[in-house]
């Protein structure tokens, strides 16, 4: 449970902007700032389950993107290595690969942070206004998929117990798996008939569906959204007039000595701040309570 509550639409808007920006702003100063910011944010929000594994996966993906890009893209002036024919591995292609990989990792980080603050119920709430049936199906899937997977595990356990005397072989294995799937599916179908009856008998489709959830747009949402929109517009102007985006081909238009200290970069940094502010405020409340409990 959290005490900082923004309307889900506010969160969605904010995180969508961050995701898009992670991809558009290729200037390393911008992406690094975004990276630092998002890591701080995740740290405050609490590191989600399975996060480390996922980060590792994305790292490996990032490295492979870099390698593949350097092998198949031959644009760029700074030739490093002769590959074949007229094709060279270029410095620009490597750098471009690194930047793309980095923005992908950024997008993943933004998404994990989003998952921490917006529950799927809130997401579906936004969704259900426009697509009530689709959102219901998603809720049902959320219940059925884990149930089916535990069942399948149980069925496979039983099958391997019953057929342990059988010769193991590829064909037998496939046969066994097919049998397990048949059992699972017919079981699920059989039960879904009862589920359908249960839905029907509880008035499904008698009227237009409503929702038990309600979220109000508060003053804080208005302030948050206006702040976000203003700083985003300024940052986008930075894309057009400033140097938030860099060119790679034929030659990289960036050097680390050009620190982009202008209004655009400042507004980009500002864009990153409000959520950190809100989250650390929340964290402080909990920290205070925890120390109080600890002392008493």
């Amino acid at each position: 449970m959290r005490i900082t509550k923004l309307h889900p639409i506010t969160y969605i808007l904010y995180y969508v902007i961050l995701t898009v920006f992670a991809f558009l702003f290729t200037n390393p100063y911008y992406s690094l700032s975004l990276g630092i910011f998002i890591i701080i944010l995740i740290k405050i929000q609490g590191i989600p389950k399975g996060f480390k594994v996922a980060v590792k996966g994305f790292m490996i993906m990032g490295i492979s993107i870099t390698i593949i890009n350097s092998l198949i893209s031959y644009k760029g002036d700074t030739k490093l290595l002769h590959l074949f024919g007229n094709n060279f591995m270029t410095f620009e292609a490597i750098m471009y690969g690194i930047v793309v990989a980095f923005s992908l990792i950024l997008m993943f980080l933004v998404f994990s942070s989003f998952n921490q603050v917006v529950s799927y119920q809130e997401l579906l709430y936004i969704f259900s206004k426009k697509f009530p049936v689709v959102s219901l199906i998603m809720i049902m899937a959320l219940r059925f998929v884990p149930m089916l997977s535990t069942r399948l595990e149980e069925i496979i356990k039983l099958q391997s117990f019953e057929n342990k005397h059988l010769k193991k072989g590829f064909v037998n294995k496939i046969k066994g798996l097919a049998n397990s799937l048949v059992t699972m599916i017919s079981w699920a179908l059989e039960e879904s008939m009862i589920t359908a009856k249960s839905m029907k008998s509880r008035g499904y489709k008698t009227a237009k569906r409503t929702s038990y959830l309600s979220y109000k747009i508060n003053r804080i949402d208005i302030i948050f959204i206006s702040f976000t929109i203003m700083s985003s517009i300024l940052s986008i102007l930075g894309l057009i007039y400033g140097n938030a985006r860099i060119e790679f081909y034929p030659r990289i238009g960036f050097s680390f000595s050009q620190f982009p200290l202008d209004i655009y970069y400042c507004s980009f940094l500002l864009l990153l701040l409000p959520l950190i502010y809100l989250e650390s405020k929340e964290e402080m409340v909990w920290h205070k309570i925890a120390t109080k409990n600890h002392n008493s």
Binding site: Q121, L136, I139, M140, L142, R143, E191, S192, I194, T195, K197, S198, M199, R202, G203, Y204, K205, T206, A207, R209, T210, S211, Y212
Partner: peptide, 19 residues
């Protein structure tokens, strides 16, 4: 198999949302 949704509160709300 008569449960339709994933959380308790959603399940209890389900018929009321329907009507």
């Amino acid at each position: 198999n008569q449960l339709v949704t994933d959380t308790v509160i959603q399940e209890i709300a389900f018929p009321l949302e329907n009507i």
